Amino acid sequence: MAHLGAFRRTPAPPSSLESRSMISLTKRSLARWSLASLALLATAHPALAAAYPQKPITLVVGFSAGSSIDMVARAVGNKLSDKLGQPVLIDNKPGAGGNVAAGLVARAPADGYTLLVVANSIAIAPAVYPNLKFDVQKDLRAVAYVGVGPVIMKVSTQRGFQTLNDVVSYAKAHPGALNFGSSGVGGTPHMATELFNHIAGIKMTHIPYKGGSDALAALIGGQIDVLINPLLGDVASDKVRSLAISGTQRSHLAPGVPTFGEAGYPAYDLGVYYGVVAPSHTPADVVQKVNAAINEVLKDPSVVDALTTRSGITLAPGTPAAFQKFIDQDIARWKSVVEKNPGIVQP
Rank of each mutant, 00 (worst) to 15 (best):
S16P: 07
L17P: 05
E18V: 11
E18Q: 15
I23H: 07
T26W: 13
A31C: 12
L40P: 09
A42W: 13
T43N: 09
A47R: 07
L48I: 12
L48W: 10
K55Q: 15
A65L: 07
L80I: 11
K83T: 11
L84R: 08
Q86A: 11
I90K: 05
N92D: 12
G97C: 00
L104N: 08
A108W: 10
L116S: 04
V118E: 04
I122G: 08
I122T: 07
P126W: 10
F134V: 01
L140A: 04
K154N: 15
Q158Y: 14
Q162Y: 06
T163C: 08
N165R: 10
V168S: 07
P175I: 02
L178K: 04
N179H: 09
V185N: 09
H190E: 03
T193I: 04
A200E: 03
A217N: 13
A218V: 06
I220E: 15
G222L: 04
I228L: 06
V240L: 08
V240E: 08
S242H: 15
G256T: 06
G256P: 06
G264W: 02
L270M: 13
Y274R: 05
Y274K: 02
A278Y: 11
V286E: 08
V286W: 11
Q288S: 14
K299E: 12
D300A: 00
A306Y: 01
T308I: 01
S311R: 02
S311L: 04
S311P: 06
I313S: 01
L315V: 06
R333K: 15
V338K: 03
N341Y: 04
N341F: 02
